[in-house]
Amino acid sequence: MFPPAHEAAQQAQLRQLHPALRKVWILAGLLTAGFVVLIVGVVEHFWWVGKESWPLPDYALTVGVLVVFVVKAFVTAFWRYQSWRYAIRPHDVLLHYGMLWRTRSCIPRLRIQHVDIESGPIDRAFGMVKLSLYTAGTASAVGTIPGLLPEDAEALRETLLATERADG
């Protein structure tokens, strides 16, 4: 069901993000899982394990939460990756993203005030960076492309900033 048929027919070459981004998201998801499981485990251990009133087997809750969050990390990483597309069109930057709540964002190139390239520790571990676009509009970063190689991000930035007054 995606991308929409007419857009494939258009000249827009919809690109996907770099595949390594999935690993970034999985790792981030696993870290979150670890954190949550730690808290649930501690709570379960001290409050509920061994008590008569607790209906579940010992540590079942912790294991259950662990399984859920690990599965979630993998599923969302792949799903979110699949849902992401972007394109640099002659007049604007086109972003497609979102798993359940989908967004299609058009950012006119001449409206871009500045471009940020940033990376967190997990991004860096896999050699990924994020590129953020800013306009004068309300949303401070009107669009962020999360999974690019540093050289691609820089090339993209140069292309976008060079748009200034070149056409239109």
């Binding site: 979102g98 359940l100 709540w101 989908r102 967004t103 299609r104 964002s105 058009c106 950012i107 006119p108 409206r111 306009t135 004068a136 509009g137 309300t138 009107v142 669009g143």
Partner: peptide, 14 residues
Amino acid sequence: KIQSVSLGQSPFQR
């Protein structure tokens, strides 16, 4: 005055 245009869909809208 248009800075950008965004299109959104909830699952129900989709």
